[in-house]
């Protein structure tokens, strides 16, 4: 474990806590894409198939459980919670994400570390996570003004993978034969997708103005 990876995991956890706070405090999920939340639930369930077979550390197992449980809880809230579900922007959250799932799985069948069920699903989860934010970014562009907690949620979610890129660079330089091409290349693509959001987030922070993404 290095400082970059710890910072990445903590930033990821923070993004989830901010999202839970927004939903709990405002009893609303307006501005949140349910499709992105569902994609993340699939990402975590596909990535952590080794949850019960490979014990790495208490920290690793604990965080995997947190990620799976929180993503499922958020999807449940947005679908079934009597108050929260009413504020879901159903007519704005229309990204056809089936293609993202299909393309990611097809790529995982072609490019993986090893052709086993666990490794193909692991690669699938890596590719899917890289594009999982797209429905959320499209929703932000359509929904005009973005509330602070939603903006912070997306910001931390984008920042965590940037920390992971620093972690991979650090490990590549300090550990012999360390390579994570699948995660590394996907991580760069994932972080690049946030580029314009980061730009407008920085502008809104600098001008102390409301975050607004151009349509």
């Amino acid at each position: 474990m290095n400082i970059f990876r710890l910072a990445g995991d903590m930033t990821h956890l923070l993004s989830i806590l901010v999202l839970l706070l927004k939903i709990y405090a405002t009893k609303s999920c307006s501005g949140i894409s349910r499709k992105t939340q569902e994609l993340y639930a699939i990402v975590f369930m596909a990535r952590y198939l080794d949850l019960f077979t490979d014990f790495i550390s208490v920290y690793n197992t604990f965080m995997k459980l947190i990620f799976i449980a929180s993503s499922l809880a958020i999807v449940w809230c947005m679908r079934f919670h009597p108050v929260v579900r009413r504020s879901y922007d159903r007519e704005l959250d229309t990204f056809r994400y089936f293609f993202l799932v299909g393309a990611s799985f097809a790529l995982a069948l072609v490019w993986h570390d090893k052709f086993t069920l666990q490794e193909v699903f692991w690669a699938f989860s890596i590719y899917l996570e890289a594009v999982a934010i797209l429905p959320q970014l499209v929703l932000l562009q359509r929904s005009g003004n973005v509330d602070n907690l939603t903006g912070q949620y997306v910001f931390f979610l984008g920042a965590y993978r940037a920390f992971y890129i620093l972690n991979w660079i650090y490990r590549y330089m300090t550990e012999p034969r360390f390579t994570r091409w699948i995660a590394g290349i996907s991580g760069v693509v994932q972080t690049a997708l946030y580029a314009d959001f980061f730009y407008y987030y920085f502008i809104s922070w600098k001008n102390n103005s409301k975050l607004k993404l151009p349509a």
Partner: peptide
Amino acid sequence: LNNILYHDEL
């Protein structure tokens, strides 16, 4: 376990 297939990261 060799390096690649040991997913020690989240």
